[in-house]
Computed example of a mutant assay.
Amino acid sequence: MADVRLFPRLAAVHARRLLANPGISTGVDPDALRSAAEPFVTWAPSGGRRSTNAELDRLRDNIRAVAAACGWPGPAGQVSRASFDAGMGAFLLESGYLPVAEALRDDVWSWIAIALVPDVCLWRFEGAAPERFLGGRRNTLQRLWSRARVFDRGPGEEDRWELLDRLTEDAMVQITERPSIGADPKLAAAIGEAWVRTAAEVGASAMEALTREAVRNLRITNEVLCFGALGDADLAAAVGEHFQRAAAATASQTGQASG
């Protein structure tokens, strides 16, 4: 039988109470927060065994190691943040440390962000905005696991994590945080691949407006044409066509503006 580790859970009401601590915005004692969270922790009643403290500490140390490779706890610049996002997403998914059933739960990520590695979360996002600690699509680490799950080309694939490395933050948001797109991993991955191909042709600096145009039209088209019903080749072609049209439109607008 597989050894399924269960993780501590921290309900939103208790997570918000812990985040009300005014010290979390200026400095944080991870051990103190972990102790403060302990009375509110719950676990799944079945489906595996509870993770030991040693296993949880190992996860904490691995997360910190990835952050340290990107400059933590020093100043977090744009390059170090982007490197952290890509590296952490790959680690969280590739390591298989969190079972999918646990990683799909917001309350698990609330506990990880608040009680296990609040220092890393504060480094990645200054200001201690609650949404970066509470479970959900904006959670510092949960968003990275979710992105890696969508953009993983698969074990054994060449450049397995190229999409995580190449896609900009704006592109990630446009793709994964639009419910009609992000809810369909196959479509989201196809858009990511089209983004990389198009960026290689026109340059990454031109991609922000182009991506917004392409994604807007893809969402409209998806109302009448079910992209999820297309085969891989047809889906890639359809998405690629939208990006090519957006590239042409953007180039035309740029030319008119410069003229």
Rank of each mutant, 00 (worst) to 15 (best):
A67F: 00
E241G: 12
F133V: 02
G136L: 03
S25A: 15
C226Y: 12
I175A: 05
T176E: 08
P39W: 07
F40L: 13
Q253W: 12
A103V: 04
S258C: 10
P30W: 02
S51H: 02
A247P: 07
T168R: 04
P39D: 10
T52K: 09
G47M: 06
N62V: 04
R105D: 15
T250Q: 15
V41L: 08
A249I: 07
F151W: 05
Q253M: 14
A199K: 05
R64S: 07
G231K: 08
L210P: 10
S46H: 14
R153S: 06
P75F: 12
A90S: 14
Q174L: 10
P155Y: 04
V28C: 12
F84T: 03
F227I: 01
D165I: 01
R245V: 13
A190Y: 07
A32P: 08
A238Q: 11
R81P: 01
E223W: 03
A82N: 07
A237S: 07
L56W: 01
V13E: 15
C121W: 05
A11D: 14
A37N: 02
E177F: 03
A188F: 02
T140R: 04
A32V: 11
H14W: 10
R245P: 07
R81E: 05
R58L: 13
I63E: 08
M1A: 15
D119K: 04
G87K: 06
Y97Q: 13
V150Y: 00
D234T: 06
D106A: 12
L92M: 05
A69C: 06
A257M: 10
P130D: 08
S35D: 13
W161S: 01
I63Y: 09
S35R: 15
A209M: 14
T168W: 06
S95V: 06
L18W: 06
A20E: 13
A76E: 06
M207S: 02
V13K: 14
A65H: 11
G77I: 02
N62C: 10
V100N: 11
W195V: 05
F7M: 04
G135K: 03
A68N: 11
P73W: 02
L6R: 14
G87R: 09
A44P: 03
S205P: 11
R105E: 15
V224F: 15
R16E: 13
V224C: 12
N21Q: 13
A37Y: 03
L167R: 00
E193R: 09
